[in-house]
């Protein structure tokens, strides 16, 4: 009798449990992110930067490629807000157009490195043993090499072009992501929900896609936002050293490099793009740190 009574489900009681937290993962993250002023500032700057890159032709006051030697080294003023460079080109317009390259450089190699790193990291972590050993040995080798030097070697071998910058930065960058994903996979693999999936007979690749990858997202999100400024800085360094973007492209790194010779008589030529790099890198770092804090409970789980 008692059993029958007990197993009957009282509607009222079930209803009473409706109150538990109803927030989803993203709502929760966004709510804590909203409270972080630095992260919000970073986010706004990034948004402006993206808009600037997209709408460059409409907002740039001058043609960034138009050479006018009569107009060399104009000081910042009403006509040219940030002055002109040694070819008389408008620095502000070149910075606005340069944001396109920076955005591309920030996103594409980061996405490539993330994809490679995720695949190799999960596979290494999940299968372990020899697979793990091989992948991690290669990644150690990549990591133990000075990354800028490695990228430079790649650029020299392949020749300087935008595509080759992507390749160079991807070869250098995947190892870090792979390490993070592998570590995360190792801890997730022994979780009971993964065991439950194995007990049901779910195939390994589906376990990786359905159970492990989605639970790496908090880590990957933070990594991604911090990877982008890394790529932007690497491109700037490569261009500064002359193996990155090639003239007449208006990459910020290249602009700093070209302007460095005139640092004393026309400092704005180098300093303006330098500040642009600084601002965007800081913005991404602020957002990344904010995300890390907002995701903290998920990162620790």
């Amino acid at each position: 009798m008692n059993l029958a009574r007990n197993l009957m489900l009282k509607k009222e009681v079930i209803e009473a449990s409706d109150e538990l937290v109803k927030e989803t993962f993203w709502q929760d993250v966004f709510r804590s992110l909203k409270k972080d002023r630095m992260a919000i500032t970073g986010g706004i700057v990034i948004l402006l930067f993206v808009l600037m890159a997209i709408f460059a032709p409409w907002i740039a006051p001058h043609d960034p490629y138009e050479v006018n030697l009569d107009n060399q080294f104009q000081k910042p003023g009403l006509e040219h807000w940030l002055g002109t460079d040694m070819f008389g080109r408008d620095v502000l317009s070149r910075i606005i157009y340069g944001s396109q390259i920076s955005l591309l450089i920030g996103l594409v190699p980061s996405m490539i490195t993330m994809s490679i790193g995720i695949v190799l990291g999960i596979v290494a972590g999940y299968f372990g043993r020899r697979t793990d050993f091989v992948i991690m040995t290669i990644s150690d080798m990549v990591l133990s090499f000075p990354s800028l030097l490695l990228a430079m070697v790649v650029m020299y071998t392949l020749g300087a072009s935008l595509l080759n910058i992507f390749i160079a930065l991807s070869i250098v960058g995947w190892a870090g992501t792979a390490r993070v994903v592998r570590a995360q996979t190792l801890s997730l693999k022994n979780k009971e929900f993964v065991e439950a999936a194995r007990a049901v007979g779910v195939k390994p690749y589906i376990i990786m896609l359905r159970h492990i990858l989605p639970n790496c997202i908090p880590q990957l999100l933070v990594l991604f936002t911090l990877e982008i400024p890394g790529s932007i800085l690497s491109e700037a360094s490569l261009s500064f050293l002359g193996v990155g973007a090639q003239p007449p492209a208006s990459s910020w790194g290249l602009m700093v490099s070209n302007g460095k010779e005139f640092l004393f008589n026309a400092p704005w030529v180098a300093i303006a793009p330098g500040i642009a790099i600084l601002v965007i890198v800081l913005a991404f770092n602020f957002l990344g740190d904010g995300l890390r804090d907002a995701l903290d409970p998920y990162l620790k789980q």
């Binding site: 009971e192 929900f193 065991e195 439950a196 049901v200 007979g201 359905r210 159970h211 989605p214």
Partner: peptide, 22 residues
């Protein structure tokens, strides 16, 4: 994999045994 249908497991920790993203 076929035999898995016949044998199952229920875990101790109800917080670790369910994928939080599903």
């Amino acid at each position: 994999r076929q035999l898995r249908k016949e044998m199952q497991i229920i875990f101790q920790d109800p917080f670790a045994s369910l994928n939080p993203r599903m």
